[in-house]
Simulated scan of single mutants.
Amino acid sequence: MYNLSEGAGVNTTNNTFSIEDYDYTGDYDVTEPCTFNNTENMELVLGPYIHSIICILGLVGNSLVIVTYAFYKRAKSMTDVYLLNVAIADLLFVVALPLIIYNEQSHWDMGAAACKLLRGVYSVNLYSGMLLLACISTDRYIAIVQARRSFRLRSLLYSRIICAIVWICALLLSIPTLYYYDRYLPSHSPADYEGEEYGIIRPYSEETEPMYKNVTKTLEYVCELRFADNTTAWMVKVLVPSTQMAVGFFLPLLIMVFCYTSVIVTLLRARNFQRHKAVRVVLAVVAVFIACHMPYNLTLFYETVIMFFEQACGSADDLQVAKTVTKTLAYLHCCLNPVLYAFIGVKFRNHFRKIVQDLWCLGKRYIAPRRFSRVTSEIYVSTRRSVDGSSDNGSSFTM
């Protein structure tokens, strides 16, 4: 019988075998687990290099968005509040990503607490980021298509309440990840440490620890889903990726397609040059979202469908390679969000230029205090005059 509680049987999620429940007195052929050489080689390339670039770009871009809203452009509309929260979610993700990569390559040296915390942070930011993008598309739909009612529906109070609800929902949806993810030694690991004096291979535990006294190879811990029984394993291993695909991709995608289609129709009727440029921005937002997240979610869907079926080692390795590559492509979206949703706006770019100018001025120690005071006063006056609450309705996509 297959035991799914600790990745036992043939499990393409963490690719482990367990013989814990078998009778060791009979004659059995013990098959070694698959070796995922292609996946490991791909991770060695993506981890130190591509993911590092994503972390740096995401850290710089989202930090600039947060600094701009904190010191230069105070949030005055629903879109501003949503953009600030998206930047916070993306920033938390790019901060956690290096730690996740480090632990995966060093067999989770930071322990079980880091396993749960980092996986949980990733899950919370995934749901919150995607739902906030759906909120932005809804806000722009109301501002442009339902312009007559926008002043009543779009307020800072509503936006803050909605953001709080989004973060709470993201936390609730991440409870299974926080609870079931654990750091442990896979049941197949002892296959690497079998000895003549024992004759059989037993899972690592306090009772079987003497088996490992002469072992020189480092035990390779993993941070994966772990369960107490098969029923829970079947349910959660289907529920977690299904929820991630439904709430973290398909629901935001449907909202974005509906809202932005209505926005494009409204903008095309406006017969205005700026509005036609805005149509290109809308198409870019939707195209980038689909290009970044569609491949990974299709791969995740295929993996979920075939999860409990036996697979050849080569096919399982190819699937993990595809999942690794498409997940990296999804990570790239956190770098593009600041460009698509913030820096593409004229007002935001003006505030960003002021940040660059101020940093340049602060770098010149010979600058006169009076001149620096005058520059700061001009920035303050400019910030006070840039009121977005009323003018944002018709220029949410202005280039």
Rank of each mutant, 00 (worst) to 15 (best):
M256P: 00
C259H: 03
C259F: 01
C259A: 14
Y260L: 08
Y260S: 06
S262K: 11
V263L: 03
V263R: 03
I264P: 01
I264V: 15
A270Y: 03
F273N: 08
Q274C: 12
A278D: 04
V279N: 06
R280V: 14
V282L: 02
A284D: 01
A287Y: 06
A287M: 09
A287N: 02
A287H: 02
F289V: 06
I290N: 04
A291V: 09
C292N: 13
C292Q: 06
M294L: 15
M294C: 10
Y296R: 01
T299P: 00
T299Y: 03
Y302D: 14
I306A: 08
M307R: 13
F308D: 05
F309C: 08
F309I: 04
F309V: 05
E310T: 13
E310A: 14
Q311F: 02
A312M: 10
A312D: 15
C313M: 06
G314K: 02
G314W: 05
D317A: 05
D317I: 05
D317Q: 03
D318M: 14
L319S: 12
L319D: 08
Q320C: 01
Q320T: 04
Q320K: 06
V321H: 02
V321D: 04
K323G: 00
T324V: 02
T324A: 14
T324W: 00
T324Q: 03
V325G: 01
V325H: 00
T328Y: 01
A330E: 01
Y331C: 05
L332M: 08
L332T: 09
L332P: 00
H333F: 15
C334Y: 13
C335Y: 07
N337Q: 10
P338D: 07
L340C: 03
L340K: 05
I344Y: 08
G345D: 03
V346A: 13
K347T: 12
K347M: 07
K347E: 08
R349C: 03
N350A: 11
N350R: 14
F352M: 11
F352R: 09
R353F: 14
V356R: 15
Q357G: 07
L359V: 15
L359G: 14
C361D: 15
K364E: 09
R365C: 02
A368L: 06
F372C: 08
R374M: 11
